[in-house]
């Protein structure tokens, strides 16, 4: 491989520019684009359980889509989005102070330790971590008995397992690391002088944070949201292990259409609508993110002043 790549380099790409990407393009066509195209096709078919591929493509219809919009299914949709949006929000709120602390308030050595501590739990089996939440949350568990003993909760113990609450807790837990890391990277890149200049100009710490730090951390927040919100929406494991009937999420519902229920058209339609919903939520989210710093900038002319001051210092950003 080495040699072929090298000779391509030498020839200054006389072939098509995407030559090196051809394996990837083929791979993605065969194993990504084509299968998903079929899912789109199946979503317009009708269920026919007598066949090996249990879909009748003879008569295409949008029946499955209207079935998804049936009240009960639609509610699971809404519940999934609600859990994911809330969990993403909680991840930002919980993770931002940690990332901020690691980026600005500690020595280099401690940065490494904090980051390692954040990342390490993510490398234990996702499933066993999720299952492990059953231990502290069990109504007959040690924690529950202790809380009852202290008289802080009712005699029934912790009533969280098999509810959306358990899913909410575990999902925040499972994805928190994926939020903290990009937040840290973005914050860490911020030129300290920007913040100092802002303070020198008399802006309070709140104004500095809102006007300088937060807008500059924008890309990190965006990356973090992408890394957490999307997998959350399709999460199949957390809800299956902890959610019970009430914490059902759309991911588990889609999977069951393909394994147990054998209703491929319905499952396909659900999956497509889920992606549409995810993308819609992202667009809405980004519009908000796009507007917010501009509003903040309007509200805080300090930023403009700071930017100008830095430019006038003529010190090129070196980080």
């Amino acid at each position: 491989m080495t040699f072929s790549v090298a000779s391509v380099l030498r020839r200054r790409w006389r072939g098509p520019k995407y030559l090196l990407a051809i394996p990837a393009i083929i791979w993605y066509l065969v194993f990504f684009a084509a299968p998903i195209a079929f899912i789109v096709l199946y979503s317009f078919g009708t269920k026919d359980s007598s066949r090996l591929v249990p879909v009748d493509l003879g008569s295409l219809s949008t029946k499955s889509y209207s079935a998804v919009f049936d009240e009960t299914f639609f509610k699971t949709f809404r519940a999934t989005l609600r859990i994911s949006v809330l969990a993403t929000f909680l991840c930002v709120v919980i993770g931002l102070p940690v990332a901020y602390f690691a980026a600005f308030k500690v020595a280099e050595k401690w940065k490494a330790i904090i980051l390692a501590a954040v990342v390490v739990p993510s490398f234990t089996s996702f499933l066993i971590r999720t299952v492990a939440w059953r231990i502290p949350l069990a109504p007959n568990g040690t924690l529950s008995k202790w809380l009852v003993g202290m008289g802080w909760i009712s005699d029934n113990g912790i009533q969280i397992l098999e509810t959306p609450m358990a899913v909410q807790i575990a999902i925040v837990y499972n994805y928190l690391g994926f939020m903290i890391l990009p937040l840290f990277v973005a914050l860490d890149r911020i030129d300290v002088r920007m913040r100092e200049a802002s303070k020198d100009l008399g802006a309070g710490r709140v104004a500095t944070f809102m006007g300088v730090t937060l807008p500059l951390a924008g890309p990190g927040i965006v990356a973090g949201v992408l890394l957490t919100f999307i997998p959350m929406c399709g999460d199949y494991v957390t809800a299956t292990v902890l959610g019970g009937a009430k914490g059902n999420m759309i991911g588990a519902m889609i999977a069951s259409q393909f394994s147990g229920a054998q209703n491929w058209p319905l499952g396909s339609a659900m999956a497509i609508l889920m992606i549409a919903a995810v993308l819609l939520a992202l667009v809405v989210g980004f519009v908000v993110v796009w507007i917010a710093p501009r509003l903040a900038a309007l509200a805080s002319p300090v930023v403009q002043v700071v930017r100008r001051k830095i430019l006038s210092d003529q010190s090129p950003a070196s980080k």
Partner: peptide
């Protein structure tokens, strides 16, 4: 069964 599952999960939404 599937409808019941959807229904059971929906009443909190």
């Amino acid at each position: 069964l599937n409808k019941s599952k959807a229904k059971a999960g929906a009443d909190l939404a």
